[in-house]
């Protein structure tokens, strides 16, 4: 990897956030975290990540809304969106892709699997 990709990890569960932050950093990404939807939207005002790792169910703003925002904002045109959610229904997954997500990974996930999918997406 010539240049460190910028990744934004959004999840309201502190433990999941903790492990994701560790994983992504170990992979060599430049990691920024957001503990809820509002924080994520605030960050996205100025921060231009290459990929966003997005939980769906959060207490304030849900992941779908954030994804929609990213898709509609010109400066985030190149930003990839990866949903990471415990919602495993076909309809929920379809909705994620319909909103323009690049990947939809269900929880719980395998670390190796997750990392390889995200790197594949970026390369």
């Amino acid at each position: 990897m010539s240049q460190a990709y910028k990744i934004l990890v959004v999840d309201d569960d502190p433990y999941i956030l903790m492990s994701l932050e560790f994983l992504m950093r170990k992979t060599g990404f430049n990691v920024t975290i957001a503990r809820n939807g509002t924080e994520a939207l605030e960050l996205l005002e100025t921060y231009l990540p290459d990929v966003v790792l997005l939980d769906i169910m959060m207490p304030d703003v849900d992941g779908y809304a954030i994804c929609t925002y990213i898709q509609q904002t010109p400066k985030h045109t190149d930003c990839k969106v990866v949903f990471l959610s415990a919602k495993s229904k076909e309809a929920d997954i379809q909705k994620g892709y319909d909103l323009g997500a690049d990947l939809y990974i269900t929880k719980p996930f395998s670390n190796k699997d997750l990392v390889s999918k995200i790197t594949a997406l970026l390369d």
Binding site: D13, Y15, I16, S19, L23, A86, K87, S88, K107, P108
Partner: peptide, 25 residues
């Protein structure tokens, strides 16, 4: 049932991910 499994997934996610980290590193 769906909601229950969904609710179970969240803690399970952290457990699996963290256990893998400790195991892999």
């Amino acid at each position: 049932l769906y909601t229950v499994t969904h609710e179970l997934r969240t803690p399970l996610t952290s457990i699996r991910s963290m256990a893998e980290i400790v195991y892999d590193h």
